[in-house]
Write a protein that binds this DNA or RNA. Sequence first.
DNA 1: ACTTTATGTCAGCCTTGTTGACATTCCAAG
DNA 2: CTTGGAATGTCAACAAGGCTGACATAAAGT
Lengths: 170, 170
Amino acid sequence: MSDGATPSGPGSETLLFLTDEQLRKGIEAMFFAYRGFTADPDRILEEQGYGRAHHRAVHFIHRCQGTTVNNLLSILGVTKQSLNRVLRTLIDDGLVESRVGLRDKRERNLYLTEKGANLERKLSDAQRERMRAAFRAAGPEAVSGFRQVLEAMMDPELRRHYQAVREGMS
Amino acid sequence: MSDGATPSGPGSETLLFLTDEQLRKGIEAMFFAYRGFTADPDRILEEQGYGRAHHRAVHFIHRCQGTTVNNLLSILGVTKQSLNRVLRTLIDDGLVESRVGLRDKRERNLYLTEKGANLERKLSDAQRERMRAAFRAAGPEAVSGFRQVLEAMMDPELRRHYQAVREGMS
DNA sequence: ACTTTATGTCAGCCTTGTTGACATTCCAAG
DNA sequence: CTTGGAATGTCAACAAGGCTGACATAAAGT
């Protein structure tokens, strides 16, 4: 009787009949939910004159302190020129520190400064708060399903980044 | 033992303990999954010289044939100038037809032409295919949870648009 | 008649994608 | 050792698609 719609009894998890209407509903759910997902950080960012691109950079530099520009590029999926512009303003504004690589001097290792860590916390607090409320409202079973579907929707290459819990700077 | 993490037995759905790490995982799941979600349509759109904005317009005009510009604005959450640019190119290219309203001649009712419907089908086929694969891989329970969490994550005003299955042109 | 509403349009700005050109650094083959 | 190619990061310029503000038009409503 779940909303996932099976035509008949148990064991049909692998033979799911999915109508176009159910799939459209899923598509619009992603569209509308993503707007909510980004709404709170967007407001904070605007106050400080930053955009979503800065948020992404700050988030992943926080998650992988000391990561290289190249690694960030493969996570974010933009061109290095595009990332560089964002990174430069963050560095100029003293939110991110860029240290020349020790082993390979072509690389730059990226770190959040205290100021950068403050912004990151402010942003992720807001975003976590919305996620927490949604998780609470939906319950633990739903949270598990949510994660399963999203994971199955990722491109395989991005799924690797998602699953790499803390690969450090590699 | 679900990944939603409850500290103890049954009945704790309303007292969920959610670690920052679990919430971060949910946040990144949204980020990476949304990229996959838009990847296939983006490729098709690029071939034809359109962007994501055109996709959104075409999608919701298809869903609500005969809708007005104003209704589209409230769904998409952009300015009329921004929507108008997109709409104008779609009309000029013969994908969308704009008819003067019958009751209220100030309004324009928007319809997909056959050419527009063809593009819409091509885009939504691709997107549905990815959604279908993800739903199949995750199973019906997961699909239900996915929808519950996403719905809880929306802003209330957008949730109305989501739930309005076919409000037509109102 | 006057106001409000719905829509369209022009001009200009900002963010954030893109490509192309270029500097620096490293490494490996000669 | 040197030299050429690959990897890395920076600068410049352009395009899409957001935004605001100003203004025109037509149709409703009062």
